[in-house]
């Protein structure tokens, strides 16, 4: 733990620099509770997905109507943990799903994932995103909440070369580096978060 501490501190600093929200947890169970809390507190006054309150074209509007309830998506989660999450979510009236993202393209509230690696230098999360459900969930969710085990943090991207090679050699494979929320500066170079993907990225550093 002492060895990974400076790395996790560097990771935290760099992730925050790209507007990620970083917190610490000591167990996966705690992370689940955090996810449900976050979902519960999010947009307390409205269920609408982001942008649906604005004047849209008729077809744009239609997609907004697919979401009627708060939704927490956690594809790829171990069955036991998923069952636990579902239970916690149900207590707060939140729908918890791990499949069927294509039916939810209008948007979901939270995607809950566990990252495979972290790169401290840039505050980057690395995911084996081979599963379509996982990839979609982390794009259509308004908040992406990712658990990163501290032991999986490396300093530089080059320190992950071997692991990356192993991932990319699997065929087919889809690997993703995620650094901060989806962003654009295409209008007058003003930063806007959440153009296509999540509006917020939350990272839970798991001391393991």
């Amino acid at each position: 733990m002492s060895e990974s501490q400076p790395l996790s501190r560097l990771f935290e600093e760099k992730a925050k620099a790209v507007s990620a929200v970083v917190s610490k947890v000591t167990s996966l169970e705690q992370a689940l509770a955090h996810a449900v809390d976050l979902c519960d507190k999010k947009d307390a006054c409205q269920i609408l997905v982001s942008g649906c309150e604005l004047p849209l074209s008729a077809t744009g509007e239609a997609l907004c109507e697919t979401k009627q309830q708060k939704i927490l998506a956690a594809p790829g989660l171990e069955p036991k943990l998923f069952a636990k999450l579902k239970e916690l979510a149900a207590e707060r009236g939140i729908l918890c799903i791990d499949t069927g993202m294509r039916q939810r393209l209008g948007g979901v509230d939270i995607a809950f994932t566990v990252a495979d690696f972290g790169i401290a230098e840039t505050g980057t999360l690395v995911f084996d995103s081979n599963s379509e459900e996982q990839r979609l969930a982390t794009m259509i969710a308004e908040f992406h909440l990712a658990v990163l085990p501290v032991s999986k943090i490396r300093e530089k991207s080059f320190d992950l070369e071997e692991e990356l090679l192993a991932l990319l050699q699997k065929s087919p494979s889809y690997t993703a580096f995620v650094t901060g929320a989806s962003r654009t500066a295409d209008i007058e170079r003003v930063l806007a978060l959440g153009v296509h993907g999540p509006l917020e990225l939350h990272i839970l550093l798991l001391e393991d």
Binding site: T124, S129, S173, A176, F177, V178, S182
Partner: peptide
Amino acid sequence: QAITSYVSWITGPGECQ
């Protein structure tokens, strides 16, 4: 920027529902 928000590495055609 130190890195773009996303870097996607795609080897071969994956699952597509």
